[in-house]
């Protein structure tokens, strides 16, 4: 494919982020930036702090130290629904959908941040709220069409197979029309065909809507294929940051993935942490 993608300014900048739970240091002094319209892959062995990183970005975790600059505003941490309102949408490693609700309803909840009228207005004035509802429905239908999930529009998501649930979750994040989309292992547990579909959707999202995407993924092949840039975390530290080719040949990265013992930083716990199972 001939790409004429234009990677723009810095959208999100993380500086010296540190985060610990009890005595475990999940992230230490991590800094990197996400630029407009790019697909950034975040990789690293198990327990390297990838999910924590996403949780910091969308405000589920509040870092102990560091600064987050998003859309030019610098702050110490984010709040989840504030992050959502500012255009950060995400999916979860273990699908967090509203299981009892239909696909359509799930996707419609993604429109919450787009609500112009406040809740009481919604409850009291059916007229204008209805018109707004129609607009939201149209936006939701476009996403349904985009993700080719028309057939399951009215199916409660709890009854869907895993791969489709992942797709619905992506749909919910997309209807928010996010500026920054965070994907936590979007292809975990999928078969080859489902992975290919998901890859295509991610690339199409990036391409069609110009959405900036930061994704965590275990499947190295996938990450290297679709990312414009890759950040590698290990032991809660950033060990590499660059184009897929640069990262692929980086000695630290190779060591980390092969589990070669290296200088353990003083603030990281010994080897009985989840880090003990490096990915092949």
């Amino acid at each position: 494919m001939i790409s004429n993608k234009h990677i723009g300014e810095v959208l999100l900048k993380l500086e010296d982020i540190s985060l610990s739970f009890g005595g475990v240091q999940a992230l230490s002094n991590v800094s990197f930036e996400v630029r407009e319209h790019e697909i950034l892959g975040i990789i690293g062995p198990n327990g390297a702090g990838k999910s924590s990183m996403l949780n910091v970005i969308n405000g589920f975790y509040h870092p102990d130290e560091g600064r987050i600059t998003y859309k030019g505003t610098t702050r110490k941490d984010m709040r989840p629904h504030e992050a959502a309102r500012q255009g950060i949408a995400r999916t979860f490693q273990n699908i967090a959908l509203f299981k009892g609700m239909t696909t359509l309803d799930n996707i419609m909840t993604g429109r919450n941040t787009k609500m112009r009228r406040n809740f009481l207005w919604q409850a009291l004035y059916l007229g204008p709220a209805r018109k707004e509802e129609m607009e939201h429905r149209e936006a939701a239908e476009r996403i349904i069409d985009f993700l080719e999930i028309e057939a399951i529009r009215k199916t409660p998501v709890g009854r869907l197979p895993y791969g489709l649930q992942k797709r619905v979750e992506l749909g919910r994040a997309l209807t928010a029309e996010p500026d920054l989309l965070l994907l936590d292992e979007p292809m975990a547990g999928m078969n080859l065909e489902e992975k290919e579909d998901m890859c295509r959707f991610i690339l199409d999202v990036n391409d069609e809507f110009g959405t900036t995407i930061a994704l965590i993924e275990h499947d190295m092949g996938v990450v290297m294929d679709i990312s414009d840039r890759v950040v590698v975390l290990d032991y809660g530290r950033k060990i590499a940051d660059g184009s897929p080719d640069e990262v692929r040949t980086n000695q630290d990265v190779i060591d980390a993935y092969l589990g070669v013992p290296h200088d353990i930083p003083p603030d990281t716990p010994p080897d009985d942490t989840p880090h003990a199972n490096p990915q092949p």
């Binding site: 001939i2 004429n4 985009f146 391409d207 069609e208």
Partner: peptide, 8 residues
């Protein structure tokens, strides 16, 4: 036209 943006 979906996905056809980069076909020249």
């Amino acid at each position: 036209a979906r996905g056809m943006r980069n076909y020249t």
